[in-house]
Write a protein that binds this DNA or RNA. Sequence first.
DNA 1: TATGAATGAGGCTTCATTCAT
DNA 2: AATGAATGAAGCCTCATTCAT
Lengths: 189, 189, 189, 189
Amino acid sequence: MPEPVGVRQAQAQRTRSGVLSAASAVFVDQGVQAPIRDIAERAGVGVGTIYRNFPTRADLVTAVYRHQIDTCTALAPRLLEESASPFTALTRWADAFVEFLVTKHGLSAALGSGDPGLEKLHALMLDTLVPACATLLDACADADELSPGITAYTLMRAIGNLCITGPDYDRDDAEHMVATLLAGCRREA
Amino acid sequence: MPEPVGVRQAQAQRTRSGVLSAASAVFVDQGVQAPIRDIAERAGVGVGTIYRNFPTRADLVTAVYRHQIDTCTALAPRLLEESASPFTALTRWADAFVEFLVTKHGLSAALGSGDPGLEKLHALMLDTLVPACATLLDACADADELSPGITAYTLMRAIGNLCITGPDYDRDDAEHMVATLLAGCRREA
Amino acid sequence: MPEPVGVRQAQAQRTRSGVLSAASAVFVDQGVQAPIRDIAERAGVGVGTIYRNFPTRADLVTAVYRHQIDTCTALAPRLLEESASPFTALTRWADAFVEFLVTKHGLSAALGSGDPGLEKLHALMLDTLVPACATLLDACADADELSPGITAYTLMRAIGNLCITGPDYDRDDAEHMVATLLAGCRREA
Amino acid sequence: MPEPVGVRQAQAQRTRSGVLSAASAVFVDQGVQAPIRDIAERAGVGVGTIYRNFPTRADLVTAVYRHQIDTCTALAPRLLEESASPFTALTRWADAFVEFLVTKHGLSAALGSGDPGLEKLHALMLDTLVPACATLLDACADADELSPGITAYTLMRAIGNLCITGPDYDRDDAEHMVATLLAGCRREA
DNA sequence: TATGAATGAGGCTTCATTCAT
DNA sequence: AATGAATGAAGCCTCATTCAT
C-alpha cells in the first residue's frame, strides 16, 4: 500500500517546528547557550534529531528568530506609510524591535557576544533588518529629520545592545534608553 | 638572622600582579569566561596560584578592573571643576568611561551578562562609578541641562552596553552612539 | 521498518551490567572511593556512561550491592523454617551475611564510614536487611534464646564492623569474632 | 651574647606539641584524612613545619595517639592486680580501650581502613597494646575463664572495629557490643 | 528519519608536597 | 627551624557530538 505522498515530509516539518518552539522557550529561560539536551527534552525528541535539522547551534538560533525578524522587517514599509513623519515611523519601528528583543533575552546578548558561530544570525540581520531600517533612515534624511552620520547597521546594533537587560536594568530602562538614543538622532531644527 | 622584611611579600605581590596582567590580556582575547588554565599559562604560574589569590572567578575579574574603575571614578569631580558647563563635564567623563570600556572588551559583556558570580564587580560599580556619575548628572540637572528621568545607574549601564564592540561595530561606532545617547539626554532649550 | 524491539535497551542493559561488574571489582581493590575513571576503564566505557547510569557515586554503590543484599534478605525466612532452633537460624544467617561482607571489602568500610552520600545504601539496609534480621531475633526472643537488649540494627552494624578485614585480620578472624559475638548474644540457660 | 642552651630546642618542642594538639582536635572533627593545611592553621604554624616534624601523615597520626596508647598499655598490669578475677580485669581494660577509641572517632576508621600509610600506627599497637592485652588473656586462660582460640591481636582489632561509630550506632551501642563480644569470649563453666 | 546511548575532551577545584627565603 | 607561596597531579562533572540501530 503506497503511503500518501508528503506524509513523511509533513511529519518531519512538525518535528522541526516542535524543536523550534522548544528552543525558543529554552532560550528565554537559559539563554542561547543552553544545553542541546535540554532543548531536545523540552521538544520531546532525541538530540540526534536536533543535530539533523540544525547541524550547528547557530543554525538553530537563526531559525528560531528568523520568523520574528521577518515580521519586524515587513513592518518598516507599513509604518512609513501610516505615520505622520518618517521619524515617527522610525520611532515606532524601534519600539517593535525593542519589543522583540527584550522578550528574547538571550538574543541581545548573543548578538553582542561576538560569538563567531552566530555569524549566520548576524548575516540574517544584515540581509533583512538592516535594509528595512535603512529605508526608514533614508526617509528621515530626505525629510531632514536625521542627524548626519547615522547608519542603519550601527543604529540597530546600538539598539540591540541597549536591550541587554538584567536585574537592575529592565525592559522599561531599555525602552527609555532607546528613546533617548533616538532623540539624539533627531536633527535639531 | 632576620630575613629581609617583605622579600617574600614582594615576590607574592609580583606574582599577583602578573596574574592580573595575564588575566586582563586573556579577558580581552577570550572574554571573562576564559579557562583559568589559560590565564595561568599566560601568567607563567600554576592554576593553584590563581585560586590562592582569587578564590572565585569574580574575585579575579573584579581585581582586574578595580584600578581602572577607581581611576575613572576619581576623574568626575576634576572634570566638573575644569569644564565650562556640567554637561560638558558629563560628556568628557563619558568619553573616559568609553575609552576604558572599549579597550577592555570583556568587561562590557561581563557587566551585561547577568552572571550572578559577577555581583562583586557590579557592586563595585554601584559603589564607586555610579555615585561619581550621579554627581555629574546632579550638576547638569541644577544647570537645567538634563532631560528629566535620567538616572546614573541606567545611563551607565546603557553606555556600558553601547560599548560592547564586535567586528562590524567598533570603537568609533561605540563612541558615536554614546555621543548620540548623550545628545538625547540634553534638555532642549 | 520497525527496529527489533529492545535491541538498544538490551545493549544498554549489558553496558549497565558491565559497569556494575567493574565497579564491584574495583570496590574490592580500592574501596568505594575509587576514582570513577578507574571504574570506567575497567568496564571499557567512558566516564559519561557511568554518570548517565548512576548520577552519584552513592547510586552506583547502592546498585552494586542491591542484588546481594536482596538475596541475603530473602534467606532469613527460609533458614527459620529449616533450622532446628531460631538461634541456629540466626547463626546461619549471620554466616551468610559475613560471607557477603567479607567478599565485598569495600562495603563494610563504606557502611562504617558515615559518608553522607551513602545514605541510600544505608536506607536500603534499614529497609530490607534489618527487618529480616529482626524476624530472626524475634524468633530467638520468643524461644528464650536471646539476651535482652539486642536490636537488629545494632547487631547488624556490629557484624558489619567485625567484617572490616585487613592484612592481619582476615576472613577467618571475622567469622570467628562474629561467632563469638553471637555467642555473647545467647541467653545463658 | 650566647643564647642559653636548649632555648631553641624548647621552642621546637613547644611547636611540636602545638601541632599534636591541633591535629588531635582536627582529627576528631574531620577524621585522620583532614587536609594538612587545616591542621597547620589550627596550630598557627606553616605547613612546612608540620612536614618537618612529621614527614608523613602516618607519622603525625601515630604521634597523636601514641601517648594515649601508652597510657592504655600501662593500665593492663595495674588492672590485673586490682581486679577480683583476670576476666574482670580484661573487661575493665576493654572499657578503657573503648573509652579511648570512641572519643577519637577518626582512629577506629583509620585502623580499619587498611591504609598502608598507617602501618606505623599499626606497628605501634602491635608493639604495645597487643602484648598488654595478651597478658590479660593469658591470665584469663590460666584461670580457665577464656574460650580457646581468642588471640590478643584479633580481639583488639575486633574491639576497634566495634568502636566505629556513626549516626545510628553510637558510643553506647559500641560499649554494648564490646561487652557482648567479651561475654562470648568467656568460657562457659 | 529518529533515537539516545556512548564517548571523551575540557573546565573546575582541591590539596599534598616542595623549596626559596 | 619556620614559613607559606607556588606547583601541578588528580579527581570531579558536564555536555557537544557521533553513530549503530
